[in-house]
Structure formats: C-alpha cells, structure tokens
Design a protein around this nucleic acid. Sequence first.
DNA 1: TCCAATGTAACATG
DNA 2: GTTACATTGGA
Length: 275
Amino acid sequence: MIEMPEASTIARQMNETLTGKIFQHFSRGPLTHKFLWLNKPAEEFDAFVAGRQVTGAKSYGRSIFLYIDETHLNLFAELGGRILYHAQGATLPAKYHLRWDFTDDTSLTYSLQMWGFVGLLSKTDLSAPPFTDTGIPPLSDEFTFERFNQLLEEYPEKKAKGIKGFMVTSKYVFGIGNGYLQDILYRAKIHPARKIPSLSLEERSQLFSSIQGSMAEAIRLNGREDERDLFDYPGGYRRLMSSQTMGNPCPTCGTTIQKLAYLGGACYLCPTCQV
DNA sequence: TCCAATGTAACATG
DNA sequence: GTTACATTGGA
C-alpha cells in the first residue's frame, strides 16, 4: 500500500516530471477491479481533463494531489499498487487499470493492488467532508508531541483497542498504514495491543519520535523496497519487521521475530523487546 | 498457494 | 473485544 513515504516520493516526482504537460485522454485499462473507486464515470474524467494542464503535484499524508489547471485536481487516496510514468516511445505495461495520456506522447498508468480511490475534484471539494476527515500527517508543523498526545486522548476507542487501532485509523495520524507501523512500534518498543491509557509519557514520547524518525528515514530513501516510485524503481527502505524478517533473530535481543494476527493485517514483532 | 491490507460486518465471549 | 471477509496481481 502507498503510505506517506511513497506518496511523498511519487508526488515529488510527478511535480518535477508532469508539470506543464497537457492531458490528451483519460481511459480505463484492460484490467478491471471491483475495489477501484472513481468518483465519476471514466467518460467524465476524460471529457474534463482533455486539453487541461498539469500545474503541479504534492502529497498530503498518504494522498497524492495532481493539480489540473488552477481549479481542480486528481486525487489518489487510500490506494495500493503502482502509478508509473512512461516516457515518449516507452512500452506501456500489459496490465493496468487507469491511464492518462499527455499531448507530448508520454503517459501515466495506475495498476491497482488491493484497492484505491481516484477522484476528480475541485479544490473547494477538498475543504468539505469526507476529504476533511483525515488526521494530521507526521512531519507536518501541526504534528507536535502535544497534539499527538491530545489525539491519543481523543481516540474514542482508546480503552477498547490497542495502539495499533489508533495508529492505522486515518482520522488521527494520517499517512501510516500497517506496513510502516511494524517498524514504528518496534523502534518504540511497544506491543501493538497495548492500550493507550497504559502508555507512560515516556512511551508516548518514544512512539512520537519513532513515527517522526521512521517516516523521515523512509522518505529520505524514497519509500519501501517492496514499493515502486513513479519510474518503477524500488525504494531503499528495508523494513526490520515484516513477513521477510519473520523467523529471523531480533536485531536487538536475538529473540525470534513473530507474526501475530491482530485488528486486520499481520503484526510482526519481537515479543521480548515490545511489551 | 499464499500474501498484501482497510473498513466494516459478523462473530464469540465473559 | 476479535476475527473474517470483500479482492486479485504478484512472489
């Protein structure tokens, strides 16, 4: 899935590569998928974007905004898969779900994995629900330790669910999914099922630092090694806790890394370090 | 053959 | 309070 480091990398590359290009055509690819959500029929996407210009791109949490003229944007949200740029003359992938062609004979394709929302919105649409329901992206000015602590207290299910429930719910911290969460909790030495009221101030501080540190490092490395950037290059961030490292010794204490099914999606953790 | 993962529905339990 | 399930391309 695309989490904040991937969204950041792809948006930066889109901004550098696509800005100034004129859309020629939007279309669906040869693959279909029930969990691909467009907010309008593909024909409306096509009719709207044709002849309009890309004016930039940026990321927000795990979302990507691709700006169209001064008034609209193409929103990529809650999505998995690959968004790829194809230079003039490049062979398009055989399988993809969506495609944007530009007038200079370059194009963009999206191959979905799991699910994804692609929306054609006006900038004002972004300032109304459901697009305002997202939480605060890590590394943003708003994301201070004080605010983080406040969000922990505001989480309505703080007594019922473990810290994992809070962390992967986009309404609070926006940008982290199950993938990076494993490393974040490992670095903070916190078990995914720990209840929020039981977290000491020091543990909250460790968690906050771990979020900031993990996100900064992953952004610096252009995302995870098992995800791809706009040009189909893998990122350089190798997760410490994942299906790939399960069964290996914990780098800190040597205990075997375990897998645990909890609140949807797998947790990988060191049962000794994370309590 | 199994894995990835979000949100929600359905289930089990005390 | 926890798990199953929707899905499907890729390892």
